[in-house]
Design a protein around this nucleic acid. Structure first.
Lengths: 137, 137
DNA sequence: AACGTTTTTGATAGTCATTCTCATCTGGCT
DNA sequence: AGCCAGATGAGAATGACTATCAAAAACGTT
């Protein structure tokens, strides 16, 4: 993936060391079109470098989150799920029957959130919004 | 508190046994104007019945949540926080510096959420929305 | 009020996701 | 090629929560 090379040099420029394991994890993230858990990323990273350990997956995810390179999602039930944040911001709708995650985006809601925070005397730093629904037949 | 008596009979009507411990936990919840954790509720419940254990707090909270009597909030960092759901629905803004929780309500956002779910082919069951902000000076 | 069934309880062990520890290894500057 | 701060793997530790189980307590029935 091209994403990976870009991310690598971006991170390297910020003084982050690029190790075999980190490349493997970035590659796994880049290849993922869903929202994998740490455990799933471990599996997928090992296709690129079989030496990757779970501890390193967690550590790398923390580094990446700190740099704003990925987004951590904590949906209801189960562990955190991750995705690269190189695509436009979006929120999630989770199918409560299958667990499927659908991405969506609403500028109206984004604007309303800013507005609400402002009215309450706060500067909005980030937000979390998840819809939980059941597929209509 | 009067809330407690009402909740008691409501729950009793649904076949839920009213024990000393459950009364203590309901009382603690009713007295709380903030969003206590299970641990905090244990402390506060013990003012009403010193025999309450942590296991019972968790069990009772599950029962109450199942009956729709309380709402469980999973804000970022730390454990779940609870509140009686006998007041109108609202969402939360969390001060990222102090942890203070501010409640707010936006009918516009509620409506937009319904609409988004519908457009995606889902029936909205519930949602989660938290704003994280910094107090404006 | 006492009985009997069924649920609840306290104490504690277990689970699960995540973080920490530490001896060893390695990326990237020189 | 050599150095060394930072990264790694393996596994122990943590923290929030859930399960287990024998003893205790609700509450409908007498």
């Amino acid at each position: 993936m091209n994403d990976v090379k870009e991310l690598e040099s971006e991170l390297r420029g910020e003084g982050v060391r690029i190790t075999r394991q980190r490349v493997a994890i970035l590659s796994a993230l880049s290849d993922s079109k869903d929202h994998p858990t740490a455990e799933e990323l471990l599996e997928r990273s090992r296709d690129f470098d079989s030496s990757v350990s779970l501890a390193t997956v967690y550590r790398t995810l923390s580094v990446l989150e700190g740099r704003g390179a990925i987004q951590r999602n904590e949906f209801e039930g189960g562990g955190a799920r991750f995705e690269l944040s190189n695509r436009p911001h979006h929120d999630h709708l989770i199918d409560i029957e299958t667990g499927k995650v659908v991405e969506f985006r609403s500028d109206k809601i984004e604007r309303l959130q800013e507005e609400i925070a402002r009215e309450l005397g706060y500067e909005l730093v980030h937000h979390r919004m998840e819809l939980y629904g059941r597929r209509k037949s």
